[in-house]
Amino acid sequence: MKKMDILICDDSMLVRKKLKDLLEKLECQVWEARNGEAGFEIYQQVNPHIVFMDIVMPKIGGLEALKMIKDYDPKAKVIMLSSTGTATKLTEAIKCGAVDFIQKPYDDEQIRCVLAKFSG
Protein backbone atom coordinates (compact mmCIF):
# COMPACT_ATOMS: atom_id res chain seq x y z
CA MET A 1 0.00 0.00 0.00
CA LYS A 2 1.41 3.41 -0.96
CA LYS A 3 2.01 6.02 1.72
CA MET A 4 -1.12 8.13 2.02
CA ASP A 5 -2.18 11.43 3.52
CA ILE A 6 -5.29 10.92 5.62
CA LEU A 7 -7.57 13.46 7.29
CA ILE A 8 -9.58 12.36 10.32
CA CYS A 9 -12.50 14.67 11.01
CA ASP A 10 -14.20 13.66 14.26
CA ASP A 11 -15.13 15.52 17.45
CA SER A 12 -14.20 12.48 19.56
CA MET A 13 -10.65 12.68 20.87
CA LEU A 14 -10.76 8.93 21.50
CA VAL A 15 -11.77 8.09 17.93
CA ARG A 16 -9.11 10.42 16.52
CA LYS A 17 -6.43 8.92 18.75
CA LYS A 18 -7.31 5.29 18.03
CA LEU A 19 -7.63 5.85 14.31
CA LYS A 20 -4.45 7.90 14.14
CA ASP A 21 -2.52 5.17 16.01
CA LEU A 22 -3.72 2.59 13.50
CA LEU A 23 -3.09 4.73 10.41
CA GLU A 24 0.38 5.67 11.55
CA LYS A 25 1.19 1.99 12.02
CA LEU A 26 0.18 1.64 8.37
CA GLU A 27 2.65 4.43 7.58
CA CYS A 28 0.04 7.03 6.70
CA GLN A 29 0.54 10.73 7.32
CA VAL A 30 -2.40 11.84 9.49
CA TRP A 31 -4.11 15.20 9.96
CA GLU A 32 -6.85 15.78 12.52
CA ALA A 33 -9.87 18.07 12.77
CA ARG A 34 -12.52 18.15 15.49
CA ASN A 35 -15.36 19.60 13.42
CA GLY A 36 -16.44 20.01 9.81
CA GLU A 37 -15.26 23.60 9.55
CA ALA A 38 -11.70 22.77 10.60
CA GLY A 39 -11.81 19.65 8.44
CA PHE A 40 -12.63 21.66 5.30
CA GLU A 41 -9.82 24.13 6.04
CA ILE A 42 -7.28 21.34 6.45
CA TYR A 43 -8.57 19.61 3.32
CA GLN A 44 -7.88 22.74 1.26
CA GLN A 45 -4.34 22.96 2.63
CA VAL A 46 -3.36 19.29 2.44
CA ASN A 47 -5.50 17.68 -0.26
CA PRO A 48 -5.42 14.30 1.51
CA HIS A 49 -5.90 11.03 -0.36
CA ILE A 50 -8.70 9.94 1.98
CA VAL A 51 -10.92 11.60 4.59
CA PHE A 52 -12.58 9.74 7.49
CA MET A 53 -15.55 11.92 8.37
CA ASP A 54 -17.84 11.66 11.40
CA ILE A 55 -21.44 12.83 10.88
CA VAL A 56 -22.42 14.26 14.27
CA MET A 57 -20.08 17.13 15.13
CA PRO A 58 -20.48 20.62 16.57
CA LYS A 59 -20.38 23.77 14.37
CA ILE A 60 -20.41 22.14 10.93
CA GLY A 61 -21.50 18.48 10.84
CA GLY A 62 -20.08 15.75 8.64
CA LEU A 63 -22.65 15.80 5.84
CA GLU A 64 -22.31 19.55 5.37
CA ALA A 65 -18.52 19.29 5.45
CA LEU A 66 -18.73 16.45 2.91
CA LYS A 67 -20.70 18.70 0.53
CA MET A 68 -18.18 21.53 0.98
CA ILE A 69 -15.27 19.21 0.24
CA LYS A 70 -16.97 17.67 -2.82
CA ASP A 71 -17.78 21.16 -4.16
CA TYR A 72 -14.13 22.09 -3.75
CA ASP A 73 -12.77 18.77 -5.05
CA PRO A 74 -15.27 16.50 -6.84
CA LYS A 75 -12.69 13.68 -6.81
CA ALA A 76 -12.34 13.73 -3.01
CA LYS A 77 -12.57 10.32 -1.36
CA VAL A 78 -14.58 10.79 1.81
CA ILE A 79 -15.51 7.81 3.98
CA MET A 80 -18.20 8.45 6.55
CA LEU A 81 -17.47 6.99 9.99
CA SER A 82 -20.50 7.31 12.20
CA SER A 83 -22.47 5.68 15.00
CA THR A 84 -25.73 6.52 13.22
CA GLY A 85 -25.77 3.76 10.64
CA THR A 86 -29.39 4.06 9.54
CA ALA A 87 -30.35 3.40 5.94
CA THR A 88 -31.46 7.02 5.65
CA LYS A 89 -28.10 8.38 6.78
CA LEU A 90 -26.25 5.96 4.53
CA THR A 91 -28.31 7.00 1.49
CA GLU A 92 -27.88 10.69 2.34
CA ALA A 93 -24.12 10.29 2.64
CA ILE A 94 -23.79 8.42 -0.64
CA LYS A 95 -25.99 11.03 -2.40
CA CYS A 96 -23.67 13.74 -1.08
CA GLY A 97 -20.69 11.96 -2.60
CA ALA A 98 -19.27 9.74 0.17
CA VAL A 99 -17.42 6.75 -1.26
CA ASP A 100 -18.08 4.47 1.72
CA PHE A 101 -19.77 4.32 5.13
CA ILE A 102 -18.45 2.58 8.25
CA GLN A 103 -20.57 2.29 11.37
CA LYS A 104 -18.85 2.87 14.71
CA PRO A 105 -17.43 1.14 16.53
CA TYR A 106 -15.26 0.06 13.61
CA ASP A 107 -12.71 -2.71 13.72
CA ASP A 108 -9.19 -2.28 12.39
CA GLU A 109 -9.81 -4.69 9.52
CA GLN A 110 -12.58 -2.46 8.13
CA ILE A 111 -10.15 0.46 8.03
CA ARG A 112 -7.46 -1.63 6.33
CA CYS A 113 -10.01 -2.80 3.75
CA VAL A 114 -11.18 0.70 2.79
CA LEU A 115 -7.60 1.93 2.58
CA ALA A 116 -6.76 -0.92 0.22
CA LYS A 117 -9.92 -0.26 -1.79
CA PHE A 118 -9.30 3.47 -2.26
CA SER A 119 -5.52 3.62 -2.32
CA GLY A 120 -5.34 3.51 -6.11
Binding site: S12, V56, S83, G85, K104, P105
Partner: peptide, 10 residues
Protein backbone atom coordinates in the same frame (compact mmCIF):
# COMPACT_ATOMS: atom_id res chain seq x y z
CA UNK B 1 -19.29 10.39 25.67
CA UNK B 2 -18.37 8.07 22.79
CA UNK B 3 -19.88 5.08 24.63
CA UNK B 4 -23.14 7.03 24.96
CA UNK B 5 -22.91 8.09 21.31
CA UNK B 6 -22.48 4.50 20.11
CA UNK B 7 -25.33 3.26 22.32
CA UNK B 8 -27.58 6.00 20.98
CA UNK B 9 -26.39 5.23 17.46
CA UNK B 10 -27.63 1.66 17.85
Amino acid sequence: AEFLNETNGI
